[in-house]
Amino acid sequence: MPIGIFMFLAAFAIIAGFGVIMQRNPVHCVLALALVLIDLGVLFMGLDAVTLGFLQIIVYVGAIMVLFLFVIWLLNIQADPGAGRHLGLKLFGSIAAAALAAEFAAIIVHAPKIREIRTLPADFGTVAALARSLFSDYLVAFEVTSVLLLAAIVGAIALARKVSAPLVLVTPALSRDVSTPASSASDPAAHRKSA
């Protein structure tokens, strides 16, 4: 990929990245994020990882970003009215981010230069090459990822499921602590009570 195009895409990603954090309207933030991800996908394609580039756009922009938008609309999230609040925290965050960026810049400058430039195999970036890699070198990782997603689904369902019928509390005669409202109110965190 010509260095000029790379520079353009990289700069565009950074500008779009600023768009993600600078907008007030959450929908605009998500659209800016989609822009970043499309840009990255194009970068991947320019670096010969064509399949990965398409997957990036299809999965992230086509599925995940749309999901983000649905969530924003479903929850009816409005533009943040209190943009001037938490200035101290924002200042601290900016300083920390700037320090991290400076550190990374220093590291990249001081990192040893790449000594050998390997030529890519002829089929690099094709679907076949990606599949071969996934089902040989990374077979375990590939399979474990599916178990990971399964665990995430089970966890999400368990937490989103309706709470079953409320628990019948122990009767006051049996329990010294919930016998008087005063004692339980004095230490509300100490005892688990169902509403």
Partner: peptide, 14 residues
């Protein structure tokens, strides 16, 4: 971690 994140929240009434 993901399994344990969910397990931590299992006492839904608390």
């Amino acid at each position: 971690s993901i399994a344990v994140y969910a397990l931590v929240g299992f006492l839904r009434r608390d």
